[in-house]
Design a protein around this nucleic acid. Structure first.
Lengths: 243, 243
DNA sequence: GTAAATTGGTGTACTTTTGACACCAATTGA
DNA sequence: TCAATTGGTGTCAAAAGTACACCAATTTAC
């Protein structure tokens, strides 16, 4: 008989986990993919650049709260982003997710049980950058966009989490689901194509791409053209989710 | 400033989670998809049918153990299945995953912290049923195959977990990855097609299907035919993972 | 106001993939 | 030897994918 069924004592008394959620938020500025990071300081500690802690917005799940609910609450609290698309993509549970002294110090100061093992659930989400500029915000925690192409070294295993979120985003985009969340309400076909190219990391043929868009539900042309651009202004489109 | 960044006291002292892994193991008998369940009794309690607890094989994660590692260990312990494909597909974290009195009783007897909230990580896996017959096994925990089409009411939220695992399996199969894990080493194209039909839940055209298989890497014909069947014996094939 | 720079916008021909469809072959058991 | 059962095969039409080149509209610099 397997030992761990017959005896509840197989796991040390009081073994317990903290549970957190980490949100990888992608934004698009018309040029490149960006990730929303928070720069968290320690209260009462000087704000020298190397005392900050760059991380994906995440925090502990409350004891009475569902995971999706926690993801929305935490993102909203840390970045004031609200009501956006959020998709769970993976749990990260390596026993040793804390590598750096700086991270350990942060945990010690900010967490009720700094030594406890933390398992985190990764969510990714998408926002149209044009519609969200991070607020200057507080001294202790500030959200800012960072181009995916030059992510700094992040706290804990957040670099790995971002990478995994990107992979999932690619799959989901290829499968035609989410993508319009990343564009402003009005967009041009050029932007839509560039976004696909950036996410999928390959070039697409303009005419073929547009052919496909025509066959796609929900992309409707507006009675409006681009303005203030230094070339032929493009037709603007919007997306209405088909039912 | 968001309250939960500035103050570690936002979550009640000693809030803690138990973490478990649940494995949805699919098997194929040439006819229909099956799921591996365990029938767990309470030690010292009579084994009347309604005292059992039908569940997907899962258990608590050890404090020092990675998630994938835990999934393999637990599956191996509960079912003696070893070294098989296992894929994490989702975390289940509804605050109230325990609905039935029977489940609560089981927790009370078998878990060191029965009242603690448990978040579970779902894994799915695939095995060729021909190569694994559950052993009669112990009185307290017994593994058995159950046709997917008539799953009983399972413990906790395991019905939901199985359903989510099936959805993920479908996506993965449609995307051409895993499927050969579900077949015995030698298989016929008929079996391969039936398996696709069952998983994807739709009929496929025989000739078109075979056309596609020809274009598929890794499916190689053997110098061997089916035996002991009451009709024209089929060519046997095997799968070698392409590098 | 003309030219250069920049991005927007369009159609056609070829190839590949998908999907529909029907009959003979090999074996077993009656 | 006949019935029952599953195995095995090719063709044609439609749809989707892919490669490819030029003119149009706007801005800025001269």
């Amino acid at each position: 008989m397997p030992a761990d069924v017959s005896s509840p004592t197989h796991s040390p008394k009081n073994a317990a986990f903290d549970l957190s959620v980490d949100n990888v938020v992608f934004g698009f500025d018309g040029e490149q993919l960006q990730v929303l990071l928070i720069r968290q300081g320690l209260p009462g500690v000087d704000m020298a650049p190397d005392r900050f802690h760059m991380a994906v917005p995440g925090d502990l799940v409350f004891p009475e709260e569902g995971l999706d609910q926690a993801a929305h609450r935490i993102l909203s609290n840390l970045t004031s982003l609200d009501g956006i698309y959020l998709k769970q993509f993976r749990a990260f549970g390596a026993p040793e997710r804390v590598f750096e002294e700086k991270d350990r110090e942060w945990l010690t100061r900010m967490r009720p049980h700094p030594e406890r093992r933390v398992v985190t659930i990764g969510y990714y989400s998408l926002v149209a950058m044009a519609e969200y500029k991070p607020r200057p915000s507080s001294f202790a925690s500030r959200a800012e966009w960072c181009p995916l192409s030059d992510l700094p070294r992040l706290a804990f295993d957040h670099n790995e989490i971002v990478k995994a979120g990107l992979l999932q985003l690619r799959e989901d985009v290829a499968r035609q689901s989410v993508i319009f969340e990343l564009l402003p309400e009005k967009f041009t076909l050029g932007q839509l194509q560039r976004l696909h190219e950036i996410i999928l990391d390959k070039d697409l043929d303009k005419r073929n791409f547009r052919k496909n868009v025509k066959r796609m539900e929900g992309v409707v042309p507006l009675d409006e053209k681009q303005e203030g651009v230094l070339h032929k202004p493009a037709q603007l489109y919007t997306y209405v989710r088909p039912e």
